[in-house]
Amino acid sequence: MAFLIESSKYLMKNIFCSFLNPIKRNSAAEVVHTGVFSVRSVCYSATMDQIKAVLIDLSGTLHIEDTAIPGAQEALKRLQSSGLKTKFVTNTTKEPMRTLYDRLMKLGFNVKRSEIFTSLTAARGLVEQKQVRPLLLLEETAKEDFEGIGTDNPNAVVVGLSPTSFNYERMNEAFRLLLDGAPLIAIHKARYYKKADGLLYLGPGPFVSGLEYATDKKAEVVGKPEKTFFLEAIRDLGIDVENTVMIGDDARDDVGGAMKAGMKGILVKTGKYRAGDEKKITPEATALCDDFPAAVDYILSSLS
């Protein structure tokens, strides 16, 4: 996504940064910058003042496990009282909406259920849209979000992170449905994740890949960083993508994905963030902020 600078008062800074980042001039009035030249909540984007909605990642951004990021509750209140719309978006394949909502309430975040949009919600939406009866390779807890969906005589396969389903028999059951023409829906395609013991654990991605290889099919991935995930998340808000900003700790899945969908993206240095993550995506993040409260300050200061 292009980084637009319209105001001449920022040109000096821009020119300074041109020593570090290439600048392309695409018209007399506009300078397109291909990189981020700001750090710590200072970013001069001409369109950040037109933000109307904020998407917020949960784990690693608002809280880490059962501890809130310091000051995050108050920061969320400031954001909400500014009149900006908020949505809480997360890739989850195990935790249903209820669990996420309860945790946020317990941590003192004032959110509405209707403001939470997850990869499971997105998968349910796709299942309803396709009018299929899915075989759910999901843990029991996650099946809660599919209540009311018919699963008898399945003609589709939904794959999340499900250690209890990832066995030879269940995988083959899914494989045979796919070979008979069932669509393959992946909650998300993470390669692995890290547990508190410091070890890496296989994510759903490898098992989705295995089914893809076996059947020569491509899965429809519904979670972050897919473009459709971000578009679906704001569909009921009636706000355009360019007036939306995503805040998250995952450079690729949160920020990169949102920006590819046409949104702004703010990377926070909490959760899974590691130094240099911001350099792993192109275009770079709209801004890099220390944490969620700093990201909120940045957004609110851009509005005025």
């Binding site: 030879y168 995988m171 083959n172 494989f175 045979r176 070979l179 390669r191 692995y192 296989l202 994510g203 991605g205 490898p206 098992f207 890949s209 295995g210 089914l211 893809e212 290889y213 076996a214 059947t215 020569d216």
Partner: peptide, 26 residues
């Protein structure tokens, strides 16, 4: 192999599970 036939039933073969490891470890 992607799959093979046993008891008139198609089953996932080693290649499908190796594809999982390939994806996981890149």
């Amino acid at each position: 192999g992607r799959y093979y036939k046993e008891d008139d039933t198609l089953r996932m073969d080693v290649g499908s599970f190796v594809a999982a490891f390939e994806f996981a470890a890149d």
